[in-house]
């Protein structure tokens, strides 16, 4: 027996058991599937995989995915900062309702989210006839995909910032104002630096989700190859056509982007300056 063990410390066998459970779970549920994706993609060698990514349809899908992310992420930043600012720094009626509303995309099935847009903007939808009259295409076109992606990724930045800003309160802003700083100056010199790390995490997560969203996008996309196919949709099409190498090659690219995102997040966490202890 080790008599020097701290009274509240678990015995070694318990520690080992818990670690084994966690390890086994991670390996079977997360790591094994990830590895298999890359394994399947490279089954016929690297050239075949690269060729699958290099086809015209695949390139169009990658481009559309990047465009979608490039539009929805900035939108999310603006909305997320505004919403969390309002919630953390103002008192107004309906605040609790707004917080709940922001969580809605988390609780609603993405398919339902897609259907909502079809119902509103589709040919038979509320604005359908008007949109057709003015030759504006939303459903089965890029705007629909962007809208659906924005809906689904809506909570990421706000969720990250609200608790952070609530914890920080308004003291520093008041101090800045009392020393004569303008509203804009206060935001740039005081608020923005205080939330930049939280904002960055939110953006990274939002970006990962924007590139990977399947359900909502699938409903509004129409699956037109080379036009309205995003990467996740392209994976499905290839898979259904028994082009396994192609499907897994594109899937591997998606996985790779996700891993890069997470590595970036970890690096940023480690690189946080000493002025900001605590947090995450």
């Amino acid at each position: 027996m080790n008599r020097l063990r701290h009274p509240t410390e678990d015995p070694p066998w318990a520690k080992a058991l818990i670690l084994v459970i966690v390890g086994a779970f991670l390996a079977s549920v997360l790591i094994l599937p990830m590895v298999s994706v890359f394994f399947e993609a490279l089954r016929k060698g690297l050239p075949a995989a690269l060729e699958a990514i290099g086809t015209e349809d695949a390139r169009a899908a990658i481009k559309l995915t990047l465009i979608t992310a490039a539009i929805s992420v900035p939108f999310n930043i603006v909305f997320g900062v505004c919403a969390s600012w309002a919630i953390a720094k103002f008192e107004f009626p309906g605040k609790a309702f707004l917080i709940t509303l922001i969580d809605l995309p988390f609780s609603v099935s993405p398919v339902v989210a897609g259907l909502i847009y079809v119902l509103v903007f589709g040919a038979q939808g509320w604005f359908g006839p008007w949109l057709i009259d003015h030759d504006i295409k939303i459903i089965f076109a890029v705007p629909g995909i962007v809208l659906a992606t924005i809906f689904v990724t809506f909570p990421f930045v706000a969720r990250e910032l609200i608790p952070l800003m609530q914890e920080q309160g308004v003291d520093e802003e008041e101090a800045a104002v009392s020393m004569g700083a303008s509203g804009l100056r206060t935001f740039w010199s005081v608020t923005a630096p205080n939330i930049r790390w939280g904002l960055l995490y939110g953006v990274l997560l939002c970006n990962a989700r924007a590139m990977g969203e399947f359900g909502a996008v699938s409903v509004v996309s129409g699956h037109i190859r080379g036009l309205t196919n995003t990467m996740p949709l392209h994976v499905e099409i290839l898979y259904n056509e028994y082009d396994f190498v192609g499907a897994f090659a594109v899937a591997a690219l998606l996985c790779f982007l996700a891993v890069v995102t997470l590595v970036l997040k970890t690096v940023l966490e480690i690189a946080q300056p000493p002025s900001r202890p605590g947090r995450h």
Binding site: V177, M179, A181, V190, P193, P273
Partner: peptide
């Protein structure tokens, strides 16, 4: 507050942490 030129010390100091 700017026009008044006050110096205000807050209860929790409210120093700019960054």
């Amino acid at each position: 507050a700017a026009e008044r030129r006050v110096g205000f010390v807050f209860q929790q100091y409210a120093l700019f942490r960054h």
